[in-house]
């Protein structure tokens, strides 16, 4: 068990290292650097040379990678290209805001998705299932900016209930984002509910058709006890991984939605950084998002391992 945990952690760490290499190499490979971006037209001759020396860009890529990666481990991503602000400070606020949005969407979406997934799975091919499953396909596939736009049209333009755009800047306290945050939460939870619902549904169907559920029924266990005690623990285990992917997606900045609602989270920061060609910020954000992704998935894998008696003992035996 411990060996397996360790193995997963080591693999996760390897992935993170590869990610950091990819990001660094990717940005290196792009034409131009921080100096050409900063100096724009004047980027030539002595001025360019001086800037590069100032920023340390004249050293080998190898040295710079270790400096960057070393800083990142300590939570120091250096300065943004403009040279005015520390990236770490910028990111903290944005990350907090993205986390707020993610937490709200998860709080709405996950319970709803599991409930509806179980319902559609148990009443497979009945009207409830057909309606919910079709809505799920719609919710999952309609582009976020489309549903966001439609919601703004309805609730902000026609009904005038909720403002369609967030006006508070990134570093404002959480309370400043209400009630504007409601619409983005609705859009996000719609998409994620649809994904998780479909997963839970097919998992419930599969488990309800399994031998042990049939056996429980033939042992005289009442239907709802069969569902809750025998079927759901197995049926909901795979949901952990899907939820993890959703969390990673939410924390990684839901670019389009943040732009639509002008929400100051990671996604908007990403777009702004790209528009400004602020490569150090792009690098930092990408790394944070990627590490979050790896971390969340790792957590889910470990959680699944802990909750599934089969995996748990299998690996204990292996030891």
């Amino acid at each position: 068990m411990l060996t397996l945990l360790l193995r997963r952690l080591v693999l996760g760490a390897i992935t993170v290292v590869i990610v950091s290499l990819l990001i660094f190499a990717g940005v290196e490979a792009l034409p131009g650097d921080a100096c050409t971006a900063f100096l724009e037209r004047e980027a030539q001759g002595a001025l360019l040379e001086k800037c590069r020396v100032d920023l340390g860009l004249d050293r080998s890529a190898f040295t710079r990678y270790f400096e960057w990666a070393g800083g990142a481990v300590r939570g120091d991503f250096g300065m943004s290209a403009g040279g005015t602000e520390r990236i770490a400070t910028l990111v903290t606020d944005r990350l907090k805001n993205s986390a707020l949005l993610a937490a709200c969407a998860l709080a709405v979406g996950v319970p709803l998705a599991i409930l509806l997934g179980v319902i559609t799975g148990l009443w497979r091919d009945r009207p409830v299932d057909l309606i919910l499953s079709t809505s799920a396909i719609l919710a999952m596939t309609i582009p976020e900016f489309v549903s966001a736009t439609v919601l703004i049209l309805i609730f902000s333009v026609w009904l005038r209930w909720i403002p369609g755009i967030v006006v508070a800047p990134a570093d404002y306290p959480i309370s400043a984002f209400f009630p504007e945050i409601i619409l983005p939460i609705i859009v996000l939870s719609m998409v994620m509910t649809a994904h998780i619902l479909r997963m839970v549904r097919s998992s419930v169907i599969e488990v309800m058709a399994s031998d042990f559920v049939q056996m429980a029924t033939l042992k005289g266990v009442p239907y709802w006890q069969v569902v809750f005690r025998h079927a759901l623990p197995s049926a909901l285990l795979p949901a952990i991984n899907v939820v993890a992917l959703t969390v990673a997606w939410l924390l990684g900045g839901v670019v389009v939605i943040e732009v639509v609602f002008n929400y100051p989270g990671m996604g908007r920061m990403m777009i702004d950084a790209i528009s400004d060609r602020d490569l150090p910020v792009v690098q930092a954000i990408t790394l944070i998002v990627a590490v979050t992704y790896v971390g969340v998935n790792l957590t889910a894998d470990i959680l699944t391992m802990l909750l599934n008696p089969r995996l748990r003992t299998y690996h204990m035996r292996r030891r």
Partner: peptide, 22 residues
């Protein structure tokens, strides 16, 4: 697969944006 995992962990839209910008 480690490399594939690494690519999957990167936000796709960001890679797309950077490349398009460049």
């Amino acid at each position: 697969m480690r490399i594939v995992d690494a690519f999957l962990s990167l936000p796709g839209i960001l890679i797309l944006l950077v490349l398009v910008m460049t």
